[in-house]
Every structure is written in C-alpha cells, then in structure tokens.
Design a binder for these strands. Structure first.
Length: 155
DNA sequence: GCCAACGTTGGC
DNA sequence: GCCAACGTTGGC
C-alpha cells in the first residue's frame, strides 16, 4: 500500500526545474531539520511512494510537479559540512541525527497554487493548508492525492 | 519587511 | 518538567 506525501522546497534552493535537470531527474532531499519530518522519511516512506513537489517561500506557492520517493532514508551528509547552512554541530558521525531520501521528479505540472488549493472544498483537510502548518513533509491521504490530480488536469 | 505560528533551548 | 526567550518557517 503506497503512501503519498507533499514535500516543500524553496525554488531558490531547489526548484522542480532544478530537480528535472539533475541526473535521472533525482535529487537528494537535503536539509530536513525537523524531527517529525525526519521520522516520516525514516519510518513511513517507501520507495515508489507518490510525492507532490511544492514550491514554498516564493511569489506563487503551489504544487508544481509529481515525483516519487526513489530511495530509502540515509544519512544527510550536509549535517557534517561546517560550511553548509544545514550544518548541525550537535550531530555525531556515529549517530547521525538527520536523514534524507532521494526524490525523482516524474513530470512537471501547471502550478496548482495555494489559493486554488484553499478554494477546493474537498481539500479542506489537507494538512499543508492547516493554519500554522510549517512541516516541510506532510502525508497526503489517497482521496486528497486523487483530488489534486484531478484539479491539475482541470482548468 | 512584517508577523503569526510553531519548534527548540536552557534556566530553574 | 515548566515555560520564557529565541529562532525559523512561510504566506502576504
């Protein structure tokens, strides 16, 4: 039983176009520094899970691509790189604190914007739309996944 | 740039 | 274990 996820990326860091341009359209999802998001990757994600690629902190936030989980969780190397913005001096090599998965973009979509998502009654319970939500990785229910695919094709 | 909301830290 | 202070996220 596959799971579905929404994963946020700042396009100024890694946009969907950046990901598509990478070898095999696959990028390591570096920089997750939140325990809940890490635990999703570690405990629940499986290779092949569906991913909604979301652009955050930009002019037009929204879902911009369909992707898949392309690896199991493994150590995020940037936590040990002193010159990285994701450096974590508290993480030890023999007990890494942070993990990542590889994400493969399958195709771009039109930008299904945040206002559109908010306007869709069937998406009222989508976690990323909840007030105060800051999680960079959230699970997506199958009915929401389906509704979002339909919304992308519509319009 | 502002600010609401949330997570983390650290003193006690 | 509590909670105030602080830092970060992310939409606007």
């Amino acid at each position: 039983m596959p799971h579905y996820w929404l994963m946020k990326s700042e396009p100024s860091e890694v946009s969907v176009d950046d990901a598509l341009a990478a070898p095999n359209a696959t990028v390591p999802w570096t920089g997750v520094r939140n325990y809940q998001a890490r635990n999703f990757m570690r405990d629940a994600m499986q290779v092949g899970d569906g991913v909604l690629f979301y652009h955050s902190s930009c002019a037009e936030p929204g879902i911009v691509g369909i992707a898949r989980v392309a690896s199991g969780a493994y150590t995020d190397p940037t936590q040990f790189e002193a010159d990285s913005p994701y450096f974590d001096p508290g993480s030890k090599k023999d007990a890494p604190r942070w993990l990542l998965v590889d994400v493969q973009v399958l195709h771009k979509t039109r930008n299904l914007t945040l206002p559109e998502l908010r306007a869709a009654p069937e998406l009222a319970d989508l976690l990323v739309l909840k007030k105060g939500n800051r999680l960079s990785i959230t699970p997506v229910e199958p009915r929401h996944w389906q509704a979002i695919l339909e919304r992308i094709d519509a319009a």
